[in-house]
């Protein structure tokens, strides 16, 4: 299930949705991304007061579906849930959920990690941070590009 929404999500509910009546699942691995209260940028006031997320409707869903397909080709996954929030968020807010259910734990761990790494580099989302020094679009991190590239070596 792929969902882009302004509303918050509840991981307990999401877990129930994929696991109830599905006794073949051996494990579920979840990653929940949160809005940090500090910015990586140089400046006097790095404290974030809010973050606004913009996306490209249509392309976002298309790219997330491609990433899920790629993960499913690589590992045997029972269920995949990807929820990404948009709009204005505050520090501490949940921003993204990747929940992967599989028969065996390694597929769940690796599948969730793979999906998250490619979400970071392929899904068209953009973050704008508001700090005491003003408003700034977040820049790409080379470490994120590296995280996605590591899957190509295997």
């Amino acid at each position: 299930m792929i969902q882009v929404q302004a509303e918050d999500f509840d991981i307990g509910q999401e877990l129930k949705k994929i696991s109830s009546g599905n006794d073949g699942i051996g494990g579920v691995c979840s990653f929940i991304g949160l809005v940090r209260d500090f910015s990586g940028q140089q400046g006097e006031d790095k404290k974030i007061s809010s973050m606004t997320l913009e996306h490209y409707p249509g392309m976002t869903e298309k790219q997330l579906a491609k990433i899920e397909d790629a993960a499913r080709q690589r590992w045997e996954l029972s269920e995949v849930t990807i929820i990404h929030r948009i709009g204005r968020l505050a520090p501490g807010d949940q921003i993204v959920l990747v929940m992967v259910a599989a028969v065996h734990r390694n597929a769940a761990f690796d599948g969730a990690s793979f999906i998250m790494d490619f979400l970071k580099t392929q899904a068209p989302f953009w973050k704008k941070e508001e700090t005491g020094s003003g408003v700034k679009w977040v820049e790409e991190k080379s470490s994120d590009v590296g995280s996605a590239q590591r899957w190509e070596k295997k």
Partner: peptide
Amino acid sequence: VALNMEHVQVSAAIKDSDEIAFFPPVTGG
């Protein structure tokens, strides 16, 4: 750049019926 919602390089060929999008490197997650 995206051409019809797929990431492409600037060398990609285009035609009048295409949808092109310009944006900075993505920063979701």
